[in-house]
């Protein structure tokens, strides 16, 4: 199986280039994931660099651009990919080396969404209670693993990464706006009500298409807008 992989080592390369790799057919096993293949290719060339950790689609480390679509290598079946498999780092993010990108800005925008519970009332002896219905409203929001596939596929985030929070951070904003235990809804909505933070989203929906966890950041952004309108009338 043929691979074409983006290579760039800032210490030795003046410009990035695509390198061809071949994985022998006898090394390919049924049920193999793309990450398994990458690990075998790394045995051929140990300078090939990429992030990975849990290998089960939970840690979100091995996000990359696979045949033009962002995804996690560890849960992408090799048999579903058309050869030659073209692997590139996330678009729109600075490349550190090969498939490894600098996600500082992504995490900065995540912090901007204040992804923690804000509740000033005295801490109860047991946990803060929620009705089953209120808890259900968090489904589809809390499962994000921060892999970055969504934000790195969003043209609005490519254009304004410093000012538009991006779908991942906005999904987290929605998660705490929806949380019945959170007391800072007004504060959260006010922080998002400027020309850039939330409203650079134009409903392109690449985020929803690529999310490896099947989440829907586009809907979450729409829900934030609806909550804003309800609160302002």
């Amino acid at each position: 199986m043929e691979f074409s992989i983006y290579r760039f080592n800032p210490e030795t390369d003046s410009a990035p280039y695509m390198q061809d790799f071949t994985l022998a057919d006898d090394l390919i096993e049924p049920g193999m994931m793309l990450l398994d293949a990458l690990l075998l290719l790394k045995e051929q060339d140990d300078s090939l660099s990429f992030r990975r950790s849990c290998q089960h689609g939970v840690c979100g480390s091995d996000g990359m651009n696979i045949n033009g679509t962002n995804g996690l290598a560890c849960i992408t079946p090799l048999k579903d990919l058309k050869a030659p498999i073209v692997l590139r780092p996330f678009p729109g993010m600075p490349v550190i080396r090969d498939l490894i990108v600098d996600m500082d800005n992504f995490y900065h925008q995540y912090r901007e969404a204040e992804p923690w519970l804000i509740n000033e009332s005295p801490e109860p002896e047991v946990e803060r209670h929620q009705s089953p219905e209120d808890r259900d409203r968090l489904d589809g929001l809390y499962e994000c693993i921060l892999c970055g596939c969504c934000s790195a596929s969003c043209p609005s985030y490519w254009w304004n990464p410093e000012r538009f929070l991006g779908p991942a951070a906005l999904l987290q904003a929605a998660r705490f706006i929806q949380d019945s235990r959170d007391q800072a809804t007004e504060h959260r909505l006010q922080r998002l009500d400027d020309a850039y933070s939330l409203y650079r989203c134009h409903g392109i929906m690449n985020c929803t298409q690529v999310c490896p966890k099947g989440l829907n950041p586009s809907k979450a952004i729409g829900d934030i807008r609806r909550t804003m309108i309800k609160r302002s009338v």
Partner: peptide
């Protein structure tokens, strides 16, 4: 909310 706020322009 400023004159050019996101929500106002969107609405």
């Amino acid at each position: 909310m400023s004159v050019l706020s996101g929500q106002r322009a969107w609405l």
